[in-house]
Design a protein around this nucleic acid. Structure first.
Length: 533
RNA sequence: GCGCCUGUAGCUCAGCUGGAUAGAGCGUCGGACUUCGAAUCCGCAGGUCGUAGGUUCGAAUCCUACCAGGCGUACCA
């Protein structure tokens, strides 16, 4: 709100200065560097120097003159610094009042204007075994993004796409078949192509003695999905919908999408197979097979149908969270979506790089097929949900991540997640103490007595939270939030060390705001916020 | 070969659509608890932002080439 007013003021002043030469909001308002004492700075005079031929400094001088003439009441001081930045110091009451408004309404995040219905699809691991740490990164990113978008006012559904058709599932069913027969005492070996993890034996044990035909495929998918769903629940994640690949065929969604593509002229029969001609149009590196010569659809074909179906269900925007090893797939699915008549930008594919699980710096080899891996459930047991989630969300998804179990455990006492949680627990402790001493929080005192530099910095930080959440949504990356929370916690700890809080009713309001925001931010990451630790 | 991602302090990483003296955490070293929780705080040290050019008032950020690592380039899923 404060920033918006400032934008208006700057735009209006610019119009006067250059006599109507529109600058088209092509300037920024930002925080000045630490050595400069000001609330905001703008680079408008640099941008303006391009339009009207004059030096930035000269323009800045005139700019300030104009503002001073009009006696704008929100401004305490205004000055030039560096090669032509205009710096603003605003009346501190503006910040204090704004913070109190948000505190009283418990609305620390300004909602976005559009309320798009969004479908976010993530994890979608093939149901061939338990989840591991790599899936967990996608899970944490997707779930957190869903929470963020919801907070901003969107209607968000979370979906898991289940690949319950295809080769892998046949191999899986065969593995279960053999394991079952082995349990019955038969002396047969697993085929080379098998899933060797011990969870397959456990599933076989659960079948028990049955007469007649056993549908191993049906059993194995159901059991493994149970396993996956259970692991995700432990990880604090649930889905609105589990979408079965096979339902596309059953519900004729598949035929619908393929027909539509054929009609669009982008699907052509060449050498007995149907190809998506995206390569010829420059939308992809090459054309891709959708229906094989033998008439069987490729994975790509069902995926096209799946995306067509998502839009058909009424979602305005689709978000997919994919491992970066699938990046080569992005162009073709986007091409397909556009040939189906949708905007490419309505499908947003967020990629995250893969996670290496380490122990004492040694890489742990992972292979679902060979049954050698540490499952997500084991990681959670060892490290804890909060630390695991925070760790996975601490950095930008673009870079690969080393997750060292020993490090995560060894660090547990000064792990960033506990640092943030502790700040909030500490606040509750102060509030308890104040309550015992009969000191009550007071809005009035907050308005009147808050004046220290550290307090004003904290208040600005509180107001900034809304921007951070919006940024995280825009860039589809929660790491901005975890970074912000660490900084907020640090500022609070520093403030605590310097000032006595519990005896001042105004300060109690300030720390309650901080506690609110820490709880809100941690919730967006899917991390708990205990009152005591 | 072509395409995508990554390269910033000893280590792990931030750095928003180009901005003013590039920042945290961990680690090293040195300080602070008879006080609202020391799971904390304060301080010192640590950098040719992979390399070389280019664009401009201004580049870690944009462009080009190169170097290094990862991933992808199936009628697999």
């Amino acid at each position: 709100m404060i920033k918006e007013k400032l934008v208006e003021l700057i735009s209006a002043t610019w119009l006067k200065l250059c006599d109507g030469e529109v600058i088209d909001n092509n300037f920024v308002i930002e925080e000045p560097p630490k050595n400069i004492q000001a609330d905001f700075a703008t680079n408008i005079c640099f941008q303006g120097a391009r339009l009207i031929k004059n030096s930035p400094i000269k323009i800045a001088e005139k700019f300030i003159e104009l503002i001073n003439e009009n006696k704008v009441d929100m401004i305490e001081d205004i000055f030039i610094a560096g090669p032509g930045f205009v710096n603003f110091i605003l009346k501190k009451e503006l910040f204090i009042e704004e913070a109190l408004t948000r505190f009283n309404s418990k609305n620390y995040v300004i909602k976005t204007k559009n309320s798009d219905k969004i479908l976010i699809e993530f994890v979608s691991a093939n149901p061939t075994g338990p989840l591991h740490i790599g899936h967990a990164r996608g899970a944490a990113i997707g779930d957190s993004l869903a929470r963020i978008l919801t907070r901003l006012g969107h209607a968000v559904d979370k979906e898991y796409y289940v690949n319950n058709a295809g080769n892998q599932i046949d191999v899986l069913a065969k593995t279960l078949d053999v394991r079952y027969q082995q349990l019955q005492g038969k002396d047969i070996e697993l085929p080379d192509e098998s899933y060797r993890g011990k969870y397959m034996i456990e599933i076989a044990e659960q079948i028990g003695i049955q007469s007649g035909e056993i549908d191993f495929k049906k059993i194995v998918i159901a059991k493994i999905l149970d396993l996956i769903e259970g692991d995700l629940k432990k990880f604090n994640i649930d889905f609105h919908n589990w979408f079965l690949e096979t339902s596309l065929i059953e519900d004729e969604q598949f035929d619908f999408a393929i027909e539509r593509l054929k009609r669009s002229g982008h699907l052509k029969l060449v050498d007995g197979a149907w190809w998506l001609m995206a390569g010829d149009l420059g939308d992809d590196d090459k054309n891709r097979v959708v229906i094989r010569q033998d008439g069987r659809p490729t994975y790509f074909a069902t995926d096209i149908a799946y995306h067509a179906n998502k839009f058909k269900r009424g979602y305005d925007k689709l978000i997919n969270i994919w491992g970066a090893d699938h990046h080569g797939y992005v162009a073709r699915i986007k091409a397909a979506v556009s040939y189906l008549g949708h905007e490419q930008d309505d499908l947003n594919i967020v990629l995250y790089n893969l996670v290496s699980l380490l122990r004492n710096g040694q890489k742990i080899p992972m292979s679902t097929r060979a049954g050698e891996f540490i499952s997500l459930a084991e990681v959670i047991n060892e490290v804890g949900v909060d630390a695991t989630r925070f760790f996975l969300l601490m950095r930008d998804g673009n870079s690969s991540l080393d997750f060292d179990l020993e490090l995560a455990k060894a660090q547990s006492s000064d792990n960033p997640v506990y640092y943030v949680q502790y700040a909030r627990a500490r606040i509750f402790s102060i509030l308890r103490k104040a309550s015992e001493d009969g000191v009550k929080p007071s809005n009035d005192d907050f308005l009147k007595t808050i004046k220290e530099k550290e307090e004003l910095n904290l208040i600005k930080m509180i107001l900034k939270y809304s921007d951070i959440v919006a940024l995280a949504a825009k860039e589809c990356s929660s790491h901005h939030i975890s970074m912000y929370l660490q900084e907020l916690a640090a500022k609070f700890h520093n403030y605590y060390a310097k000032y006595k809080i519990s005896e001042q009713p105004g300060r109690l309001i300030l720390i309650m705001m901080i506690a609110d925001i820490i709880a809100d931010g941690l919730d967006l990451l899917g991390v708990s916020a205990p009152d005591r630790m």
